[in-house]
């Protein structure tokens, strides 16, 4: 089980950003391309999605892919159930969500896939970082790491501190070792 944060990838270009972050953070399109490359290497047959502006180009990539069935799920915990069933059926599947939905899935993730040892990869976009204009998002998104750790969910963060060259392999390995 793993969650990947795409930190601040959705920030508008005009948003004031500290110089240090500007200097180290790869462009959003490079980040999306790296995530797409990692997910493509997994060869999912199904991609479950909730909306995310940060992940938009990734979602559009898989919505247009002819060999992948990409479909929306209305809530994160429902997605956990469907993803579990797909994995139990022997299918390769991943889910893409944003981090303010983590609260919706904690019980579902803990009591079924975690308890029954059903491996899965969930790519989670980061909100609540620098450049997030919606102040309410920070109320949950700023505490995501603590929530994941309290629940005992393994996660790997991808942000400006991780060289872009390592993003794709991290996604692939997170799936492989889930």
């Amino acid at each position: 089980m793993a969650a990947d944060g795409v930190d601040g990838g959705g920030a508008p270009a005009s948003e004031p950003t500290p110089a240090a972050v500007q200097a180290t953070a790869p462009a959003a399109d490079a980040r999306s391309a790296a995530i797409i490359a990692g997910l493509e290497a997994i060869q999912p047959r199904y991609v479950l999605m909730l909306p995310s502006g940060t992940l938009r180009s990734i979602l559009e990539h898989f919505l247009q892919a002819s060999d992948v069935q990409t479909f929306p799920v209305p809530r994160e915990e429902e997605g956990i159930g469907i993803l579990s069933g797909l994995v139990l059926a022997g299918q390769r599947a991943v889910m893409l969500i944003q981090d303010n939905g983590i609260g919706n899935l904690i019980t579902a993730l803990a009591t079924f896939p975690q308890a029954y040892h059903v491996p899965m990869l969930i790519v989670v976009s980061r909100r609540g970082g620098l450049g997030e204009p919606n102040s309410i998002i920070h109320m949950v998104s700023g505490r995501i790491e603590a929530l994941l750790e309290a629940a005992g969910f393994r996660y790997f963060q991808l942000d400006g501190r991780t060289p872009i060259e390592a993003w794709t392999s991290t996604v692939v390995r997170a799936h492989e070792y889930a």
């Binding site: 199904y46 915990e77 429902e78 997605g79 956990i80 159930g81 469907i82 993803l83 579990s84 069933g85 797909l86 994995v87 139990l88 059926a89 022997g90 299918q91 599947a93 579902a108 009591t111 079924f112």
Partner: peptide, 14 residues
């Protein structure tokens, strides 16, 4: 709440 979602995933996957 997850029984039917799990069954849905199984039915799609199978």
């Amino acid at each position: 709440g997850l029984a039917t979602p799990i069954g849905l995933g199984l039915a799609v996957g199978l």
